[in-house]
Design a protein around this nucleic acid. Structure first.
Lengths: 249, 249
DNA sequence: GCTTAACATTGACCCGGATCAAGACCTTCT
DNA sequence: AGAAGGTCTTGATCCGGGTCAATGTTAAGC
């Protein structure tokens, strides 16, 4: 880190915040932002570091500014299922409840814009613009969770991998790092193990399906973490999506 | 039906509404209720009847008053996954979006308290108490969806069935129909096929696991639709839950 | 350079749940 | 009563993905 934790630098001001237009504060007015600015603080987490633990009182809520956070549930015998993958602007934490029902772990280097839980919840009650945006975001997450239920319950391993790649591809495209005309290339933010946890598979099956998709020409692997999509339609097809998905193409 | 659709009867008044204390209107004041009362209308649906279709503009939102509604997604080739099972007081519809991303179908005879979508959304913007309750309900649904992701991704067929029975048992217990000390008995609100869609299984596997649980004494079947739980702890165990779940026991 | 450890791939084999097929049970209709 | 159709159960077989095990790859540390 290049500066003391509480020292303000340019990127710490909400006005220049990279997620100002998409995070929970999107609809907040100038003076609402001012109030949030008093409350907020930043913290960074190293890859693998725990951000919050299931069932344990958590005294903050906040937004992902940089990096990727995994939410997951673990059964008594160790079986684990990831239930959310949070990217910049996503909101972390369970308002109106002391403890989250899942673990939150930093997958990459993560930077969080955090608020003390109780004070944020109090502010929420007085600030309809915050509440509205939060409702909107939770509705989107609920939709995403339901898409994921379809994937977990009904898709084949191959379709699961393809769908995952689609989601990452779209995230990347939104992030503006769009490549040349002839294909989208991006880095996978998570390990094979994390993918397996996310997709309800084992590491081995994940690996095998990567190999299959590569052999079939749906993806090109520069190395294990760098994927290129030469033909987006082929990926859509492999994912078992009705070819609605012009989101990028 | 015993009365004309728009004729007010006792059960149509919000004050005596069976879900007044749990639905989206829970936090609404007397005059907010009055406004809702002007907007609302009731409709009943027969088992199997479609309430809303994925991707099609839907001009209402509302609460389940009686009966059970299934939300599900279907892939192009017919594979189907249920993504929600809605009971009385649950909220149906996707605020802030024209069309829902899933189908909604009446599973039993259903009675809905409905609001015209646009007028409800307008009211929502002016009524923090509605918005707060809706946020709370969506957060709960998100938690439930994530529990379901764990089930779909990691549980065995036997655990899936046991978990489903647990959920129904808890719903029933909340509904107050608690039985004698030596066991809880209830009626399954949905067919084997709907269970299969919910649990990411086939009908045959559902049927076989019912048989297994019966042979193991975890459940007693009066007939295919009536289940008795002689030993709640055994069911908890079969569901693979950490024995937290004192919710009933 | 070598060692170590995390991450990833590949192969051999197995098993849980899907598929295919038959039949039982229960309403409702004629 | 008999027929018809929906629902559920059971059996035989198959296969996708899990499990177990070995090997390859990469980067960090000494």
């Amino acid at each position: 880190m290049q500066h003391a934790p509480n020292q303000l630098v340019a990127r710490d001001r909400c006005a220049t915040c990279p997620i100002r237009e998409r995070a929970v504060c999107t609809y907040s007015s100038e003076d609402e932002i001012a109030r949030l600015e008093q409350l907020k603080y930043y913290r960074t987490f190293a890859p693998g570091q725990e951000i919050a633990a299931a069932g344990e009182t958590t005294n903050f809520l906040g937004s992902v500014v940089e990096g990727v956070v995994a939410l997951s549930k673990t059964m008594a015998d160790g079986r684990r299922q990831m239930v959310g993958l949070m990217f910049p602007s996503d909101f972390i934490g369970r308002p109106m409840r002391e403890a989250p029902p899942y673990d939150a772990v930093a997958v990459t280097q993560v930077r969080l814009c955090m608020f003390p839980r109780q004070r944020f919840e109090a502010l929420l009650l007085q600030t309809p613009s915050l509440e509205r945006r939060l409702l909107e975001m939770m509705l989107d997450e609920l939709d995403a969770a339901r898409d994921w239920m379809l994937l977990l319950g009904r898709k084949t391993a191959r379709e699961k991998i393809a769908t995952f790649l689609l989601i990452i591809a779209r995230r990347v495209a939104l992030g503006g790092k769009r490549d040349g005309v002839d294909g989208l290339e991006f880095e996978l933010p998570i390990t094979r193990e994390a993918m397996a946890d996310y997709l309800g598979l084992t590491i081995e099956t994940v690996s095998r399906q990567f190999t299959n998709l590569r052999k079939d020409g749906v993806i090109v692997l520069r190395d294990a973490r760098h994927v290129r999509i030469p033909d987006f339609a082929a990926l859509l097809d492999a994912a078992g999506e009705d070819a609605d998905g012009g989101v990028i193409a």
